[in-house]
């Protein structure tokens, strides 16, 4: 006796999986909210130029100046990240195409759009990895002399944790999209599995949306 687990007679009119993904995203958004609240608090708790911070504590960790990625990161600063943001938004657009093509039953085209989405995600991760390794060389993150940086240590901590946590989400998204891609290729995902594609899309759009927030906080403001 096997009983299909699915929406009951009384339901919200959506698939269980979709409801699950939405609730998961609420939770995930709150995790980011925790990190962003930490960022906001640490950035705006003191004057950015270090005024009023003339204690010995400050001197042990260098100046408290909050670095502006636009100027401080040089060539890999905001230009590269803005480009990266553009790539990620494009991959959201391709994801929309995957969904509409699956809905219309054009699986071959959906497959190509899905590949494009994956590549977009990988490209994003690559650029972010380049940025991290570059900053690790310049700033010596994760090394003993990191404490001697001329920047506010809280920037280092919040920058790495926010972008790192988001990067982990992109990596998971790429895996999710790979599963979707393989499913489309092997014919396991078709028009009937529309909700599965929708759920993958929800996650991917969410990751994009969070990046817009992170980008605004860390790079633009």
């Amino acid at each position: 006796m096997s009983i299909a687990i699915g929406p009951g007679e009384e339901s919200l009119g959506v698939d269980n999986g979709k409801l699950g993904m939405w609730t998961f995203l609420v939770m995930d958004a709150m995790t980011f909210a925790g990190f962003l609240a930490g960022y906001a608090r640490l950035r705006w708790k003191a004057p950015l130029d270090g005024m009023g911070q003339a204690s010995e504590l400050v001197n042990t960790v260098g100046s408290t100046v909050w670095p502006n990625p636009y100027t401080t990161f040089g060539v890999i600063g905001i230009q590269l990240t803005a480009f990266n943001t553009f790539i990620l938004i494009c991959s959201s657009v391709t994801m929309v195409h995957v969904l509409s093509d699956v809905a219309a039953g054009r699986i071959k085209r959906a497959e190509k759009w899905c590949l494009a989405t994956m590549i977009g995600g990988l490209f994003f991760l690559g650029i972010q990895g380049y940025e991290w390794t570059h900053l690790m060389q310049v700033w010596g993150f994760f090394s003993e002399n990191a404490a001697a940086l001329p920047y506010n240590q809280n920037f280092v901590a919040t920058f790495l944790s926010l972008t790192g946590f988001h990067g982990a989400h992109v990596a998971v998204g790429v895996m999710f999209n790979t599963i979707l891609y393989l499913g489309l290729r092997n014919g396991k995902v078709g028009k009937e599995q529309y909700t599965f594609v929708e759920i993958a899309g929800l996650y991917w759009h969410f990751v994009d949306l969070v990046w817009i927030l992170v980008f605004t906080f860390v790079y633009l403001l």
Partner: peptide, 23 residues
């Protein structure tokens, strides 16, 4: 709960990479 998770992750980062992470 996710807010606690974020706080716990921050404490862990601070513990694991004491020279890099100051939250």
């Amino acid at each position: 709960t996710p807010v606690l998770t974020s706080a716990v992750l921050m404490v862990s980062l601070e513990r694991l990479f004491p020279a890099t992470f100051y939250f």
